[in-house]
């Protein structure tokens, strides 16, 4: 019996199993898109993982999650958005279309009023740790390197922005319930 599989099957599985997001601009994304149902079943039956497909990216998640990395990325993006907004910049436009220099990132973090939180987090506490976090995000396709000292966010940023929106909605809902009581 011959096992029929998509053309870039090996690369797709390898990337996803390495915790990488597959982006729509990547050559194997088309394969993923055409075989969504196959991959959904493949990862569920083979490993018990959940396969998530979005128009801009695809990734897998399991019951065991990399919570620390996810939290550090959230803190990083949250402070960045807050500081951009404070500086009067449209933070969503900047994240979606713009790019950042490492120097600019340092300036935002060094002047942030979330100083206690920054100093207490090993992934963002200083110049080197922030670079390491950005490198890690690049290996996962959350950010991409544009030059030696510049990077930009890929559409994967939406995972984190959606998380913030959901959090805001639930906070507002619980506040409304409290007021109602």
């Amino acid at each position: 019996m011959e096992f029929e599989n998509p053309k870039y099957h090996q690369q797709i599985v390898e990337d996803l199993m390495n915790g990488k997001f597959i982006l729509s601009k990547e050559i194997h994304f088309e394969d993923v898109k055409e075989n969504r149902d196959f991959y959904e079943k493949f990862f569920r039956h083979s490993f018990g993982y959940e396969f998530i497909f979005k128009p801009d990216y695809a990734y897998i998640i399991s019951s065991e999650t990399n919570e620390n990395l996810s939290r550090d990325i959230c803190i990083f993006i949250a402070i960045l958005c807050y500081e951009l907004d404070k500086a009067g910049i449209n933070f969503l436009d900047k994240i979606e279309f713009g790019d950042f220099s490492l120097e600019e990132i340092d300036k935002y973090f060094e002047n942030s009023s979330f100083v206690d939180l920054i100093k207490g987090n090993n992934s963002i506490k200083d110049y080197d740790s922030r670079r390491k976090l950005i490198r890690t995000m690049t290996t996962k396709n959350i950010t991409e390197k544009n030059s030696e000292d510049r990077f930009s966010f890929t559409p994967v940023y939406k995972v984190f922005i959606d998380f913030a929106k959901e959090l805001a909605e639930s906070s507002k809902e619980s506040e409304t319930i409290n007021q109602g009581e």
């Binding site: 402070i79 807050y82 507002k172």
Partner: peptide
């Protein structure tokens, strides 16, 4: 989004 991040932070 900023509301969510402030709550998160």
């Amino acid at each position: 989004v900023i509301t969510g991040w402030i709550e998160f932070l």
